[in-house]
Design a protein around this nucleic acid. Structure first.
Lengths: 141, 141
DNA sequence: CTCTGTGCAAACGATTTGCATGATG
DNA sequence: CATCATGCAAATCGTTTGCACAGAG
């Protein structure tokens, strides 16, 4: 009889990572919240579930996972870095400027304007967007 | 004989803001650096010019100016908020992932791909980009 | 058993707050 | 002189580090 693996345990296998409590809870939280989470948010979630996860351990865990590419850092709200699964297809985000709602946006449409239209058809109101390019400047190549 | 106003003094007039040392130096620094600056960067610049500007005062000043729309917050590098003049035409940025080089990008081309090409022709190497939409979610409207 | 993960306390840097004082229009 | 701006010290918050110990494979 096969044992049912949680999503988190699958990811650990896939990346040959030790199956630890911190990892299991971290992945669990990401799956359930269905949006990028910041470290303070992870900690709040764990606390509300009465799960004792050390702050330092979590910072180190997230760092490891980002370096491996399992997680991806998402910088949207000023002074707040969130993390999402790196396996998600390359996508962008919609963030509510009033509450902390953030959701993935698939840029299937060919233009920013059309993507905004598609978003508005889903019920949100888009006021502005930000587009940043990253890479190496001429000096640093 | 007309008195020559600095850019900063012009902005103060335009927004009916008191002409203070903090404001003058802040605008001056922005004009000279030609790129978004973070508060620690402003402070370093002032210190290197032997200008004593209090940290608290600067934080409050920047907050005021952002609320008025004179400045705009720019969130590019994780954990680093920079500020640029809000009067700049709506544009995006290129950030070097190795040094702290940031420059404005005019999205004159119609697509992200073509904007990237145009950037590369200017000598930088684009590895990836981020696109975020902001507004109000259905609950918050 | 060995390597990796964990926990705690302390350090750090950026940002915020309270309160009393100073300067601008 | 009425606002608005300033300075300082202390508090707060997110993040990092050193070191000793524990757990997974």
């Amino acid at each position: 009889m096969k044992t049912q693996l949680t999503e988190g345990e699958k990811i650990c296998k896939e990346w040959s990572l030790r199956n630890t409590k911190t990892r299991r809870l971290l992945f669990q939280a990401l799956f359930e919240s269905r949006r990028p989470l910041s470290i303070p948010e992870f900690l709040d979630i764990f606390a509300s579930e009465d799960e004792r996860i050390n702050k330092t351990t979590l910072y180190r865990e997230v760092e490891t996972l980002v370096n491996l590419g399992v997680l991806r850092a998402v910088q949207i709200t000023p002074r707040k870095v969130s993390y999402e699964l790196g396996s998600h297809e390359h996508h962008h985000h919609f963030a509510c400027t009033k509450c902390d709602f953030i959701t993935g946006v698939t840029f299937s449409e060919k233009s920013i304007e059309r993507t905004e239209k598609a978003l508005e058809e889903q019920g949100v109101q888009v006021t502005h967007h930000a587009l940043e390019f990253f890479g190496l400047c001429s000096r640093c190549q």
